[in-house]
């Protein structure tokens, strides 16, 4: 589904990614771990189109997407969340989800202005679907609260809900549990585990190894922009190369 072939990205002299090969298959949850500064967020930015690789290919469903504008990648079915929460703070919870559904609307500006029946029908379905998503992520009570005023955990959940609102087939989660307590982390893990059942593939960046063990089918380890290990969570945990990258040599 998602294939990265030999992807490199350098900023001037800094080699953020070098020769990364990575695959995410449909309905799989793939983890991406690595020490701080390993290039994990750069990788997700490259997949979602906010940044473009210096060389290499990124294929989604066999189509090259590494030169495409971010909105086209989003509409092709790639959604993401952000390490430092980036909600539309002045908009309400409900509006955030509606904005996420932008790519699914077909009504043109003129149809909207004219209040065309097709536009009204479309608005109704979008709003219904938005409410379902809010219910799924336990956000119904705060639907009309500006996103900036939500408690931290709810903001994290809203980021997930908004990403799913784009109707994706692949979700990129950038440290979804950062700043959460263990019980919140476990609850979010359960939400993540529901995604493959809904037919989605997931690439999750995470520091919390308990979450990785809970949700991931396989894990890639990134260090200094290179993939240094790949396998099941248990294999990766015991890999001496990985231990060295995190803890240093004895």
């Amino acid at each position: 589904m998602l294939v990265l072939e030999n992807v490199s990205r350098h900023f001037g002299g800094l080699q953020a990614l070098s020769g990364v090969n990575l695959r995410v298959e449909p309905q799989r949850v793939v983890g991406l771990i690595g020490p701080n500064g390993a290039g994990k967020t750069t990788l997700i930015n490259n997949i979602s189109g906010l940044d473009h690789p210096s060389s290499g290919h990124i294929l989604f469903d066999g189509q090259p997407i590494h030169r495409r504008a971010p909105h086209r990648i989003a509409r092709a079915g790639v959604a993401r969340t952000y390490q430092n929460i980036r909600l539309f703070g002045e908009a309400t919870t409900f509006e955030n989800v509606l904005i996420g559904q932008h790519g699914q609307g077909r009504a043109s500006m003129l149809e909207a202005i004219a209040f065309w029946p097709s536009f009204r029908r479309e608005e109704r379905t979008l709003r219904e679907r938005a409410r379902e998503l809010l219910a799924q992520f336990d956000l119904m009570d705060v639907a009309d609260v500006p996103a900036a005023n939500l408690p931290y955990g709810a903001q994290r959940r809203l980021e997930m809900a908004r990403a799913l609102a784009t109707n994706p087939r692949l979700v990129l989660l950038d440290e979804p549990t950062a700043g959460m307590n263990p019980s919140e982390t476990r609850a979010l893990g359960e939400q993540i585990l529901r995604l493959p059942q809904m037919g989605l593939a997931v690439l999750v960046i995470e520091h919390d190894m308990s979450l990785i063990h809970q949700v991931c089918d396989e894990v890639y380890v990134l260090n200094f922009g290179q993939i240094i290990a790949h396998g099941t969570p248990a294999e990766v945990r015991d890999d001496p190369v990985v231990i060295e990258a995190y803890l240093g040599k004895e």
């Binding site: 189109g49 989003a74 539309f88 908009a91 509606l98 932008h102 009504a107």
Partner: peptide
């Protein structure tokens, strides 16, 4: 016309672009 526009998905996209252009693009907004 303006009130109609604001309640449409184009109106929501305007607000999203003001608040965070890059996130708006990741949401599929051109």
């Amino acid at each position: 016309l303006l009130t109609r526009l604001q309640r449409s998905r184009f109106g929501r996209a305007m607000v999203a672009v003001r608040q965070d252009e890059r996130v708006a693009a990741n949401m599929g907004i051109n």
